[in-house]
Each structure stands twice: as structure tokens, then as C-alpha cells.
Simulated assay, not measured.
Amino acid sequence: MKTVRIDVVSDVVCPWCVIGFGRLKQALSKLEQEIKADIHWHPFELNPAMPLQGQNLREHLAEKYGTTPQASASARATLTQLGREIGFEFHFTDEMRIYNTRQAHQLLLWAQSEGKQHALQAALFHAYFTENRNIADQSTLLDIATSVGLDSSTADVVINDNAWAQSVAKTEQQWLEAGISAVPAIVFEQKHLISGAQSVEIFVQMLQDVVAQQG
């Protein structure tokens, strides 16, 4: 059994991050007798200037990318189907909003030291994409944090501590300087990069190649 370090750079409101990680999990399940994954999540804010109240998702996509209502509907249908293939339920609605994710990332950074980062990331994805919850709302974030076993009072401090906000910004800058400009970006053993939600087969091949290089 070989241990492979996997760094996942993502944003909580990125649907392709859900798809990419889901496919990575499927690849790992195919190799579960050979590989143990050591997974670390890292912040990447797609919309760092987004106000806390957020913005209607379809309006945001139209403004940022010029996405038409027809293209948006098609993309939602595609994502919903791809989600089913990895066992994840996307629940897109016309009222769905996109939110600022800085404080969510602050919690994720802290959760790593508590051994709860992976559970929190999964809970945040579910809260936003399946339950359509406001993951910029502090009470919502605290509820999600406690649901995975994190201490509520400490989580409240982390959310409101500017030092944690600066840590998120610093980490994001480091990834930008490393050449990461889009997510998901998944790095194996700190040197092999897969960008985007690639196929299960590509992830399997990468994992096998990395293990072979370990000798």
C-alpha cells in the first residue's frame, strides 16, 4: 500500500470541482488495494469581490461570461447528469445565488488542523449545491461546521479573525504564483498537475504513474 499526497485547489461554489473530485474518488476506489490518499484542500476564490449577499447565479454568469439563459440551462442539465454519475445531487434553481466564499475557506484552513477538513469540504458542497444554503451566512457556516464535529465557539472566532482571512489570501496568492489560474487543479505528490474535471481513467493513470515512480 502506497500513500499518495493529493492537493486539491478548489472553490466551494465551483460545480466542476465537485465533478472533478468525485471522479478522483472513483479512481481511488478502483485502486483502493494499492493506494491510500492523503488529501489536502486549498482555497481558490472564483469571485473574491462578491458581496456577502451574493448575486443571482444566472445573472452572474451572464455578466461574467456572457452566458445566455439557454446555455445556462444546458450547462445545468449537463452538470446534474454528471453529478448523478458520481453520486452527487445538484439542485439548480432559477433563484440560486452565488456567494462570497472567503469565510468558508477560513473554516477549511482551520479544519485541516482539526482533522475535519475533508468532511467540512463535503458538507459545504452539499449545503450549497444540494440544499441551496447561503454559505456566506455566518450562522449557516457555524451550523455546517458543528455538523462535522467542529467546535462552534472556535469556528466563530476563525470566521471573524482577519488573520485567518489573510491566511486564505496568502495561500491563494501562492497558488496563483505557482501557475494555477482555474479550478479544480489537482496536484499529485506536489509535482504532477491535472487541471479540470478529467475522466476517471485519466486519474487512474496518473495515480498508477505516481506510484510507479515511488518505486
Rank of each mutant, 00 (worst) to 15 (best):
R5K: 15
R5Y: 08
I6P: 00
D7S: 10
P15T: 09
R23P: 07
K25E: 13
Q26A: 11
A27F: 05
L28A: 08
L28M: 09
S29W: 09
S29Y: 07
L31Y: 07
E32N: 14
Q33R: 13
E34R: 13
I35R: 01
I35Y: 06
I35C: 05
K36H: 13
D38C: 05
W41Y: 15
P43G: 02
F44S: 04
L46K: 02
N47I: 04
P48F: 10
Q53K: 10
L57G: 00
L57F: 09
E59Q: 13
H60F: 11
H60P: 01
E63N: 15
K64H: 08
Y65M: 09
Y65W: 11
G66T: 10
P69T: 05
A71P: 00
A71N: 14
A71F: 09
S72M: 12
S72Q: 12
A73D: 13
S74E: 14
S74D: 14
S74P: 00
L79G: 02
T80K: 12
Q81H: 12
Q81E: 15
L82I: 06
L82H: 14
G83A: 12
G83H: 04
R84T: 12
E85T: 05
I86C: 06
I86P: 03
F88Q: 02
H91Q: 13
H91G: 03
F92V: 01
F92R: 06
D94T: 11
D94M: 04
E95F: 02
E95I: 06
M96E: 11
Y99N: 02
N100R: 07
N100T: 00
T101W: 03
R102H: 13
R102S: 09
Q103N: 14
Q103H: 12
L109H: 11
S113H: 12
S113L: 06
E114A: 11
E114I: 01
Q117I: 07
H118N: 10
A122R: 14
L124C: 06
L124H: 03
L124T: 10
H126I: 05
A136I: 00
Q138P: 01
Q138G: 03
S139L: 14
S139K: 13
I144E: 00
G149I: 05
D151H: 12
S153A: 12
S153M: 12
T154C: 06
I159P: 01
I159R: 01
D161V: 00
N162W: 08
A163P: 00
W164Y: 12
W164C: 00
A165E: 05
A165H: 10
S167L: 04
A169N: 10
A169P: 00
A169Q: 14
W175D: 06
E177G: 03
G179K: 11
G179L: 07
I180H: 08
I180Y: 07
I180Q: 02
A182D: 10
A182V: 07
A185I: 01
V187W: 03
V187A: 00
Q190A: 15
Q190T: 15
K191E: 15
H192W: 15
L193M: 12
I194Y: 02
G196M: 08
A197Y: 03
A197M: 06
A197P: 01
V200W: 05
E201G: 15
E201M: 04
V204S: 08
Q205R: 10
Q205T: 12
L207Y: 05
Q208L: 13
Q208Y: 06
D209S: 14
V211A: 15
